[in-house]
Structure formats: structure tokens, C-alpha cells
């Protein structure tokens, strides 16, 4: 591989990942797109989904929610409000959390609390769907 892509994944709390990779597939609002080195400059918003980072023969899959991707001649930067490495998720734990969230929605006392719980649940469901 001659050309490598500089890929950075940033969350509000910290820089999560900064690496040289072969290709990254990003879940854009209007469809997934793959970014290789030398991609034309592009700015796109994200929908909740999975970023696949292709490097040599390994593929790292990271769930992201909220944010945008920016491709510059220098590389790809993904700004995400939330990012979770799929390899680090344990299935049973996630199911328990979804169950918890469902209960939260069911016994929410007021409308704002319910909305917050619902948003939490939607996020977890999207995460489960992407596994």
C-alpha cells in the first residue's frame, strides 16, 4: 500500500484514535461512504451507525452517534458525541442495559425524564442493531 489515510476519531472528551489506515467506511446521513487516501474534500453529518476502519487485514468496527466527518487533503477526521468500540461491548451487558432503559421509560414520572430515557433506549437499540 503506497498511500495511507490519516484517520482521527475525536469525542468531546478526548482524542480517541489517531492512526494511519488503509480505508475507513463512514455512516453518513445520506449513505455510507468509504474514504481512501486522497479523497476529495468533504463534510458530512453522521447518522448513528458503525465506522469500519480497514487496516491491512484487520477491520475495527466502532459505533458512533451524533457528529460529523470531515475529509481534508490531510486526512479524515470524525467528530462523534459518542463512540464505542464494538469489540469492547459485551452482549449480555448490553441486553441488561436495554432492559433497564425500557423500565426507565416505563416508570418515568415526567415528560422530560421520559424523553431522556427514550433517547437513551433508542441509542442502545441502534447499538444493538449494529452488532
Amino acid at each position: 500500500m503506497a498511500d495511507r489515510l490519516t484517520f482521527e476519531l475525536v469525542s468531546p472528551e478526548r482524542l480517541l484514535l489517531s492512526a494511519q489506515v488503509d480505508m475507513v467506511v463512514v455512516p453518513g446521513t445520506e449513505g455510507e461512504f468509504g474514504v481512501l487516501a486522497g479523497h476529495a474534500p468533504l463534510v458530512s453529518t453522521l447518522r448513528p451507525g458503525v465506522i469500519s476502519v480497514h487496516d491491512e487485514k484487520t477491520i475495527q468496527r466502532i459505533f458512533v452517534r451524533g457528529g460529523f466527518a470531515e475529509v481534508t487533503p490531510a486526512g479524515l477526521t470524525v467528530l462523534a458525541e459518542e463512540a464505542i468500540d464494538l469489540a469492547s461491548i459485551d452482549q449480555a451487558g448490553l441486553e441488561a442495559r436495554i432492559k433497564n432503559a425500557e423500565e426507565d421509560v416505563a416508570d418515568a414520572a415526567s415528560e422530560p425524564v421520559r424523553a431522556a430515557a427514550q433517547a437513551q433506549l433508542d441509542g442502545l437499540r441502534a447499538l444493538q442493531g449494529s452488532l
Partner: peptide
């Protein structure tokens, strides 16, 4: 700002991205 010269493609269009950001 180092984007001065580069022209970007926007997906969806600028106004929508801005409304999101």
C-alpha cells in the same frame, strides 16, 4: 483556518449541516 483554498463537497448541503452542527 486552513481550509481557505479548498472547496468542499457537502453532504447534505451546507445549510443542513450547519443546522445540525
Amino acid at each position: 483556518s486552513d481550509m481557505g483554498g479548498a472547496s468542499y463537497e457537502y453532504e447534505p448541503d451546507e445549510a443542513e449541516i450547519l443546522a445540525d452542527l
